[in-house]
Structures are given as C-alpha cells and as structure tokens.
Design a protein around this nucleic acid. Structure first.
Lengths: 349, 349
DNA sequence: CCGGAAGGAAACCCATGAACACCCCCGTCA
DNA sequence: TGACGGGGGTGTTCATGGGTTTCCTTCCGG
C-alpha cells in the first residue's frame, strides 16, 4: 500500500518500528533463542522464571511474531489455496464458509480464487498460489482432476478434490453420496404418485457416469417406470430456466422435475411459473444441494441436502493426511429434506 | 502439511530442493543481485545481454521467487484481509468475487473471514490477519467502524469500509447511493399507483440515519403520501419471512413492500405466497441490492441494483491511496432494474 | 588519469533451532 | 576429606531460509 516500512514517517520520539523478538529478548534480558523457545513451547525447556519474564516482555511490548519470517524459516505458511469453478454458486459459498471454519481450527487461512471453469485460468491461478507457498490446495472445479496432479506432486503440495463425484486414481477427494441421494429423491416422487420425471443436468454431467443421473435412472427402473426426458443445460439459473421453458413447451406429460442442483432448480421454477404451470400440483420440482436459497424458493424446494460441515472437515483432514498416501475418496451421505415443491401430502408450505 | 521441507525424502540423484535465486545466478554466471535486478526491473539497469542470460536461466530452471522471503524483505505480502459480517449473504458473495478480481489486477490476494457480526470474533480475526502481515483490511461488517481504527493506525495498516451507509470521520469508505436508490424505487411504486408502502429494514438499520429509510420517507413525503408501516427484522431471509407474515396478518391495506435487501425480500415473498397474497397484483415487492438471486425469485424482483464491480474497484483504489489521507466516502449510484414484482405495466415476468 | 557503466560482496529483513558454553551439583576415588 | 570428572539443566551463539538493496570494486573508453 502507500506507505512502506522504510519510508514510514518518524513520529517524534516514537519511531514506529515494529517490535521484533530482539526487542523482547532485550527487555527480558535473554537471548532471542529463548524467546523463540518460550513462544513455541520447545524444543527445549526454559526455566519457569525466565519464561515468565519473556511472557511479560511479550505482553508489555505487544509483540507478535512476523508471519513472513516464520514462514520463510519453517517452509510452511499455514495457508491453503481454494480454487472454485463458480464462486457465485451458493453451494460453494456455503462450502467455503465451512472450509474456512475447518481450516481456522488448525490455524490455517484460505486463499480463494475463481477459475470460472476455464482450464487456462485455473492453471494460472494454481501457479500463483504455489508462488505464494500455499501448504495445500483444494479444488472444486471440473478441470482440477486433469491439469495439475504431476506439477503438484513435484512441488510437494498436497491437494484434495472437493465436490467430487467419485474416486479419481491416485488422488484424494470428497463428495456427496450423490447416487443414493438422487435415488431417494426420485423414490420420494414416485411414492407420491409422480410417474414421469424429467432430469435436468449439466451438459457434461458430474463425471462419467454421473451419479445423479444413475440414481435417477435406477429409481425409475426399480419402479418399472419409463425414464423421463433428460435435458442438458449449464449448471446455472439461466440453464435451469432454459430447461424449464423447454418442459413447459414440450408438454410431454412430465409431472416432476429433478434438477441436479439448486441453481438449475431456481431457473426451472421461474420458467414453470411463467409458463403458468402450478407447482407442485401440475408438476413437482426437487433438487440436489439444499443451499439456504432452496428453502426460500417458491414453493420451497424438496432437496437432497449435502452435509457441508462434514465434507469440509473431511476435506481439511484429507489435506493433512500422509503426503504419500494412496488415492482415496470419501462419500458423505445427503439428507432428504421435504418441503412443498414435491407436493407430498403432509408438507404444508 | 504432513511432509515438511526438511524431512522430504531424498530421491537418489535428485534432492528435490526448490530452485533459488542462487541457482539461477550460478547458471547465468552472475551474482544474485543481478538476478534480482532483472526480475524486478530495477532499481538499477542491467546490460541487455546479461539480462537475457538471466531470463534464460530462469526459464530453464523454472525458477519462481519465494513469496515469503520477498515479503519478509519488502515488508509487504501483497495480501489483503477482507472481513465480512455475513459471508453467506449473496450480496457479499458477489462483492467478494469482484474484490478478488480487482485485487488480482494488482497482484494481490484476499484472505477472507466471517465475523458473524460478533465484535469479539471480529477483533480476533483482525488480530490474526495483522499477524499474517496483511497489507490492508477491508471491512463489510457493522462493527468495523467502532473497534479497530486506532490499533490499525498504530500498526500502519490501511483500511476501507465496504458497503458503508455514509461518511465516517477519519475513515475511508465506499457505499451505494442508497437514499437516491430507495427514492427511485419508491417513486416507481408510487408512479404506478401504489399508495401504502411498507418498509422492511434491519433492527438497527444501516447507520443513523439509515439512507434507505430516508429515501423511503422522502419519496412518500414528496408525493404527499401517508408513510406506510416500518417493520424491523434481521437482515436475513428468515427476518423477511417474519416481516411478511406480519404484513399478511395485519392487512393494513399495504399494497407494496420495500425490503432493504434481497435476503429480506426473499423471505417476504415466501410469506406473502403462503398467506395467499398475489404478487404483484395484491401487493408489490421491491428491494435493494440486485443480486443474481433477485432475478430468479418469484416473481422476479424489481430492485435498486448496486454496482459491485465499480464499488470493488473503488474500495481497492482507496486502500492504495495516501496512507495519511483524510477520511473520505465514495457513493456509487445504483441502477433501477424493473422486473415483474412491482407490477408496473410493460414488464412481463 | 578520470568518469561512468556494470556487476559483486555483503548487510539486512526476522524467526528458528542445532551446536556449543556454562554452572552447579553429585559421585567417585585417592 | 578434597580434587576431579560427569551430566543435567539453562542459556547463548550463530548458521540458515531466500530475496533485496546499499555500497564497493572492476574495467572500459576517453
């Protein structure tokens, strides 16, 4: 920013020089090493009286260790990079919030960047984050599994894939138990009399095969239902809107829609309302994610809710696991939250 | 994480030691100082041929400067702290996205934390961020104006208040031209025949006086309208919901609602729908912010839209202004975006 | 012989921790 | 009983991490 350390104006009588360990050492009448030992609790014992003097000096001077110097020396910054494919998706907003919390528990902070789902941008961001010496990287972006693993291993930086549909060889990842969640949602629709259920999903889906799509298929198959139409649109509100318009126009007798995420669901809802369809009477809508927004849609959405606090903890834990550990994927169950949009009896707005 | 620099396993023949400027210097046959001059473009000229050799060595070795070391030496980390009162509010999500972009333009990254509107938590976070040597702080939190200014000045850390309702003595701040925005919204309602307009606003409002509230008052006054009721609830979807229920029950002949932010508006809408009111026929709803979510409410919301890209740029600019500059507040105009919720003719869903 | 251009040596930013120095107490042996 | 060796407990010294920058040296042409 404007004022650098060196040219800081000297206020008379108080050259506002930051307090360093040397000041503390001098005041406490010890060497700087002892200050270090006291503050870091080891690796060697310090006489209680000396330690006390040091602590008093620290308090008196308001000394705070310099993070840059510490990072340089220790080779760790206590900072984690988080790369999001779409930072405006409320799912990732809520995810980020939980991740920040989980990281803070370990004294780590997050540097967050948005790759806008662009592989080139993502590569740049990863480079910038590595330059900043992050201790690890979290990816919630479709390109993450392709670009980086080798460079990351070479740099000795652990990484974890977030919101990952399934195992990726040699990599650590977390994700919702999406297929089960999707099945429960679709089963729920079927149990309450819906017979033709459309699927709205991203163009490339979530991985291959897409567990949400599988769940949707299996549930219908189990009930010997003819599979409803699949509409492929981007994972955005606008995408969902497009899908919804298609549904209202086509009128293929669809009486329920399963949207793959809350954003698409919001778009579908808007299109259905505009098209004059009554939700849930004419057509039910359910979706995956269960962000806070889903509760305040109209009608409130029945969803398979992801357990973000849990997944965030798992992600941070995985990041701290053995550096040479083999790949591993953790699936976290979702919860079925029934609200008005599925039209099931007993749920009033 | 698990593996630290020092105990990294030595692969035979290739001790994966990070490349330092010394390696580059050796390969290029110059001293480390010259490498520094070349990479930082000064402060002294380097012979073109030498510079070229250095650049080649850099490229060949894939050398990347160590950010911690640089930060230690320069006393600047190129990192900015952002403190949010509610990181889940989509307004701040979008704000954050723009701020990240604006900061990245200057090579700076953001460390983001959520104070959950708690002064104690906020103080801790500020301390942690200062420990991490952030070069500046951005506050989008109600407590920011009270707690920190002195400590920050003492630490020589510039700060800017984001989403600030008005000038704060001695401080830098940005905010929407809220009063004007509110007036336009309310004028718009009045022009289209609404005569009794309720205000939904946070318990403590936005500052004293609250410009949104003022705008709402003035616009009604100008049109010689009796002011509608004021309902004070938290700035959340749940708060808006409570307000909406109150409105449907009371039935004070209110035919329009001005919600102070998009979250409250979402809650109001849900409550009105549940109460069987038709929006906008029976009652119009407008709100402030204009987040993406507002476009996909039902019906889509007419809003005073904040110019977040602009405000983010201003915020970062202010942060880089003269350290001893006097306080300053920048007001950025909002845009009236008409959608279906205000029921004005000519706007179809 | 002087001046300027180009590059090198070394101090510095701050914290860390291995290696070393010291003190004191104890035990052992003459 | 006194001298000396050994060892635990404390503290200090100093190299180290990697980049920046001041000051100094060298070498060239004029």
């Amino acid at each position: 920013m404007g004022g650098t350390q060196s040219q800081r104006p000297r206020v008379l009588g108080s050259v506002r020089r930051p307090v360093t360990r040397a000041d503390v050492a001098q005041l406490a009448g010890v060497s700087t090493a002892v200050v270090s030992y006291v503050l870091n609790d080891g690796p060697r014992p310090v006489a209680p009286r000396t330690a006390e003097r040091v602590r008093q000096a620290v308090a008196l001077l308001g000394y705070r260790p310099n993070a840059s110097a510490r990072a340089l020396r220790r080779g760790r910054t206590e900072t984690i990079g988080l790369i999001l494919g779409d930072s405006l998706n409320p799912l990732f907003t809520e995810y980020t919030s939980q991740l920040t919390k989980a990281a803070a528990m370990r004294g780590e902070a997050l540097l967050i960047r948005d790759s806008r789902q662009d592989a080139t941008v993502e590569a740049q961001i990863v480079e910038q984050l590595i330059d900043r010496q992050v201790d690890g990287l979290l990816f919630a972006s479709p390109y993450s599994s392709s670009v980086n693993p080798h460079a990351l291993r070479a740099a000795g930086i652990p990484s974890v894939l977030i919101d990952c549909p399934g195992p990726v060889p040699g990599r650590l990842s977390v994700g919702p138990a999406a297929q089960e969640g999707a099945e429960r949602l679709v089963d729920h629709l079927i149990e309450h009399g819906r017979g033709r259920i459309a699927l709205v999903v991203g163009e490339r889906g979530f991985g291959h095969p897409d567990p949400r799509e599988l769940g949707w298929q299996f549930a219908q198959h189990r009930s010997q239902l003819r599979p409803g139409p699949v509409i492929r649109v981007p994972f955005t509100r606008e995408g969902g809107y497009t899908a919804g318009r298609q549904l209202t126009r086509a009128g293929e007798g669809v009486d329920a829609v399963f949207a793959s995420n809350d954003l698409q669901a919001a778009g579908v809802l808007r299109a259905l309302h505009e098209g004059g369809a009554r939700v849930p009477d004419d057509i039910a809508v359910v979706s995956f994610d269960g962000t806070r927004e889903s509760e305040f849609c109209w009608p409130p959405l029945t969803v398979a809710q992801q357990d973000l606090p849990r997944m965030a903890e798992v992600a941070i834990d995985l990041l701290h696991s053995e550096p040479d550990a083999p790949g591993r994927h953790v699936r976290v169950p979702t919860t079925l939250v029934t609200r008005a949009s599925c039209g099931c009896p007993g749920v009033h707005a």
